[in-house]
């Protein structure tokens, strides 16, 4: 078995909602992430899929401690990041980097590309001016950009190029884990393919581990070794892609896969169209969160939260009917 790089146990994040009555304490909270467990192995790509609002991005931010969890632990290289002293956390964070979705919003328009890429080095006080400049040029070449671009501003670049700059920036400190939060969703198909190829090449060259968040199941199918399907703050199914794709156990996963658009005009597709919309995480349904929209729900689903059941060594699901 591969070595475990990251271990997430019982992770929860509840955002308090302000009470409409002034000066009263808030009593309600949005349960954005509600008890999530998973492992990430060294060198793999774990895909996280689910609809908007299911807690994918909140979870990404919890993993690298951009926000503090309500409960649970995040163990990276055998050390718990929660309750770690600030200075030590800063050191650990060098090894966990992030690439964000919107390449237009995630680069400071007033910094030159060279300054943007060197910023992590400046913050962590690594090297002097000359060595930083060298590193920037090296990184630009790694991501397939001309090293002269260091003196230009972000607005001079196209979306795909900006995403390359973002990737270069994430690689500055030689991370081990890179969290990609919808890195290609904002790009055109032909450019998307270029960026995906780049991410794959970098993974091999630098032995990176990816957590890859996306709602595009085709991209996830191509990129990921294992996937976790999230619904309303919980993981409902986790395992290798082939296994889940061939043999989905959870009714939500089945519906999600059946919604992938056709690959050709000749394909006939059996669609499971879900009723209604995702319920509010403010008042999630009792028992199994999915029971209100589930086409096969039985009585127990309304009252009892299903546990994770291991179907195969490589495939776990939380559904009462999967037994």
């Amino acid at each position: 078995m591969m070595e475990t790089l990251l271990e997430v146990n019982g992770l929860k994040k509840h955002f308090p909602v302000s009470n409409p009555i002034p000066f009263k304490k808030s009593t309600q909270s949005v349960k954005a992430v509600d008890g999530v467990n998973f492992d990430v192995y060294q060198g793999e790509t774990l895909g996280i899929v689910g609809e908007s609002g299911c807690g994918k991005s909140t979870m990404a931010r919890l993993v690298n401690q951009l926000i503090k969890p309500t409960d649970g632990s995040v163990i990276f290289k055998k050390q718990n990041l929660i309750d770690m002293p600030a200075e030590k956390l800063r050191q650990m964070r060098q090894k966990i980097q992030m690439v964000f979705q919107d390449p237009y919003a995630s680069l400071d328009p007033r910094l030159k590309v060279g300054e943007l890429i060197a910023e992590p080095l400046v913050i962590h006080q690594i090297g002097d001016r000359t060595s930083q400049k060298q590193r920037v040029e090296e990184l630009l070449e790694i991501v397939g950009l001309n090293k002269r671009y260091a003196d230009r501003y972000p607005h001079e670049f196209s979306g795909g190029q900006r995403q390359r700059i973002n990737i270069a920036r994430a690689l500055t400190l030689n991370p081990e884990l890179v969290i990609c939060d919808e890195p290609v969703s904002a790009l055109d198909v032909s450019v998307q393919a270029q960026v995906i190829n780049l991410l794959n090449k970098l993974q091999q060259d630098f032995k990176l581990t990816y957590i890859f968040i996306s709602h595009d199941l085709n991209v996830v199918r191509y990129m990921c070794d294992r996937i976790a399907v999230m619904y309303l703050g919980r993981i409902v199914e986790i395992g290798t892609f082939e296994e889940i794709y061939a043999n989905p156990q959870h009714p939500y996963t089945k519906a999600l896969f059946s919604a992938i658009p056709k690959e050709s005009p000749f394909e006939e597709k059996e669609r499971i169209i879900l009723k209604g919309t995702v319920p509010s995480p403010l008042n999630p349904p009792s028992g199994c969160h999915f029971h209100e929209r589930c086409p096969v729900a039985i009585d127990i689903c309304k009252t009892k939260e299903p546990k994770m059941i291991t179907k195969e060594k490589i495939h776990q699901t939380s559904c009462h009917l999967a037994d």
């Binding site: 795909g160 198909v189 393919a193 270029q194 090449k201 191509y222």
Partner: peptide, 24 residues
């Protein structure tokens, strides 16, 4: 052709790179 080739099809995995249209 380029547009159709850049689509990810079933059974393709990261061992073989995706086709794309170079340039912009």
């Amino acid at each position: 052709w380029g547009l159709l080739d850049s689509q990810i099809s079933e059974g393709q995995n990261s061992a073989e790179p995706l086709a794309s249209i170079p340039g912009s």
